[in-house]
Design a protein around this nucleic acid. Sequence first.
DNA 1: CGGATGTTTTAAGTTATGTTTAAGGTTCGC
DNA 2: GCGAACCTTAAACATAACTTAAAACATCCG
Lengths: 224, 224
Amino acid sequence: MRILLAEDEKSLSKALVAILIKNNYSADAVFDGEEALSYIMTGDYDCVVLDVMMPKMNGFEVLKAVRAKGMTVPVLMLTAKSQIDDKVEGLDLGANDYLTKPFDTKELLARIRAITRQATASTDNNLRYGNLTLNRGTFELSTPTGSVKLAAKEFQMMEYLMSNPGMLISTERFMDKVWGLDFDGDINIVWTNLSYLRKKLVQIGADVKIKATRNAGYSLEIER
Amino acid sequence: MRILLAEDEKSLSKALVAILIKNNYSADAVFDGEEALSYIMTGDYDCVVLDVMMPKMNGFEVLKAVRAKGMTVPVLMLTAKSQIDDKVEGLDLGANDYLTKPFDTKELLARIRAITRQATASTDNNLRYGNLTLNRGTFELSTPTGSVKLAAKEFQMMEYLMSNPGMLISTERFMDKVWGLDFDGDINIVWTNLSYLRKKLVQIGADVKIKATRNAGYSLEIER
DNA sequence: CGGATGTTTTAAGTTATGTTTAAGGTTCGC
DNA sequence: GCGAACCTTAAACATAACTTAAAACATCCG
């Protein structure tokens, strides 16, 4: 689950990112409205936490632009203090929820869970494909005959594959989605992790393979 | 995937085209706003990268004209430096995203992926002609009786043929589109790949042929 | 703190597949 | 029937994809 945090106050931003990561989200931070907008437009995020007061473009302007493009990504807005007018304006523009500073981190996490749940609309915490089950809480990937625990990156790759069964996902897309746009390591890292994943699939006797299509990408495929 | 690059600075333009082609896009370059507009109006492009500062018509004027005609092609604008007013103006006019010069080529590619993904997600991703269907996501060419996977070059040639059905396309044109202007190999390479394509067409029982017209070019033709 | 354990990333070597070259064959227009 | 344009095939080459090992990092626990 990838979250974008747009908050210009550096110390708060840093603290929140740490908290999010600790709670198994992958989080990217941006510090002004323009950056926020252009990161959101990549479509790589499952949730956006958007401060209203920001340099260059404020949170409302960003939200307005995002919705104008037809993007439905859940947005949680942060307002400095409980301004009724702010709330009304934000709701009109299509924000999913509000939080008034200062807030409790527990509440932030709860609201993030709430709006992302709404979006994914699935009460079931497991993903299934073929004889595979991926438990999103424990990172366990299992078949009737065995199970392994996935590491975080492996888990994100598998989660992405399993939530788009049969769809082709390019190496670059994996990079964008799992490592984030500003990662600048080698592309090899995707291949390495795919390799580990495949090994684990064999280990637990999965009837699912990760199939490569040269120059195009990867997809899950049920064997014979 | 065809991309139009409108950028008047020649050396930058050339470098970007080379990068785009290397990444399996087929790219055309234009050097002023008027040209850009008339190329965009052909409707042949899946994405436009548009510099703001250009001779004859600037990027905003072009964008405005394009949207006024009701064209929804995704547009990525390039601004010389982070001008807030520019961003706001462009967004109002219907740009899909922004990039501030100088930028990293990796970021450019990521943003192109992002805006084209949005666009292609909703619309049909297949090209059709005769009993043929070309899936642009998986590179699969199929008929009711069979299907094959195309290699990247084959795919680009076929995509180009199918998006200009019946049109005559010269060997040189193929070279430019698929291999790029600065490719300096033999012309034979086009023939070789056409040959492979034809073989695959027969294999899957296509009712479409790639017809050669001596000294003129190639075109798709439905066999009666 | 400091060693143990597990994860992520880098590096380097290997394999498979797609791309290009090369060379000879065929067809067409004159 | 001759030359230019086009076609085909196979072999040489290039590179995307894969794997493994080891280095770098992070986390946990005494």
